[in-house]
Amino acid sequence: MRLLHRPDRDSTANPESRTLARDVDVARSRFAQARGLMFRRSIPDDYALVFPFESAETRWLHMLFVPFAIDAVWLVDGEVTSVTRLAPFVGLARGEADTVVELPAGAADGVAVGDAVVCRE
């Protein structure tokens, strides 16, 4: 599975996609979503953890027990609603989303509100 970024949802303006991650895990269970990246020492540069939810609402992320910075991307129907870099241990952020993606710090550089981010097999 790959995580792809298209810089503009309007495919006629920019049909090119870039790969944000090739190693993608999906946190489907409540336990997996609650644990997230906690207690890991690091994550690979080409990694993403995707949190799918049934509906769009305010979703919170925290960095408790996460010793490395990450980029977080909040999505509604594949459209980016927020992008934030979270600091190790103390980071806290929220955004409107039906899907949240966690990536290594720097992986979401160039991703902006209104862009498209999607998982593909």
Rank of each mutant, 00 (worst) to 15 (best):
L64W: 09
L86H: 09
T84I: 07
P44W: 02
D23F: 06
R41V: 13
M63G: 07
D10G: 00
F65E: 07
L64V: 12
L49E: 09
S82C: 11
H62T: 12
P44N: 13
L75S: 05
L37F: 12
L49S: 12
L75C: 05
F65I: 08
V111M: 00
S55I: 10
L49F: 11
G36D: 11
M63K: 03
L75M: 05
F89P: 01
T19F: 02
D46S: 05
A34Q: 14
L49M: 13
G106D: 03
E96I: 07
R28V: 15
A48P: 06
N14S: 12
P15N: 09
N14A: 06
G114H: 09
F51V: 09
R59K: 15
M63I: 09
S17P: 00
P44V: 08
S82D: 15
E79I: 13
E54S: 13
D71N: 13
A72Y: 01
V101W: 02
A13P: 00
R18T: 13
D25C: 11
G36Y: 06
R28N: 15
W60D: 13
L75F: 10
V73L: 03
G91L: 11
P104K: 08
A21N: 05
V66A: 05
Q33V: 01
I70Y: 05
F31V: 13
E57W: 10
E79S: 10
P104N: 07
V113H: 07
V24G: 04
T81V: 04
A105W: 02
G36H: 05
W74Q: 00
T99R: 15
L86C: 04
T58E: 12
T81L: 09
S11L: 12
T58I: 14
V113A: 06
F39C: 05
L37M: 15
A56T: 12
W74T: 00
R40G: 03
A97V: 04
R9E: 14
Y47S: 06
V66E: 00
S29V: 11
L20I: 01
A69D: 12
A87R: 15
A21T: 09
L49N: 11
A48G: 05
P15H: 08
R59D: 10
T58H: 03
A69H: 03
V66C: 03
F51T: 02
L75A: 01
A69C: 08
L75N: 07
A112F: 02
S17A: 14
V66T: 14
P104Q: 03
G91F: 10
R40V: 01
Q33E: 00
T12Q: 11
R59L: 10
D10R: 10
M38V: 13
F53P: 07
P67N: 15
E79Y: 07
D10M: 03
A105K: 13
S11H: 15
V90C: 07
D77C: 00
F89Q: 09
T99Q: 14
P52A: 01
E96F: 14
E16G: 03
D25W: 10
A108E: 01
G114N: 08
D109C: 02
G114W: 01
V101Y: 07
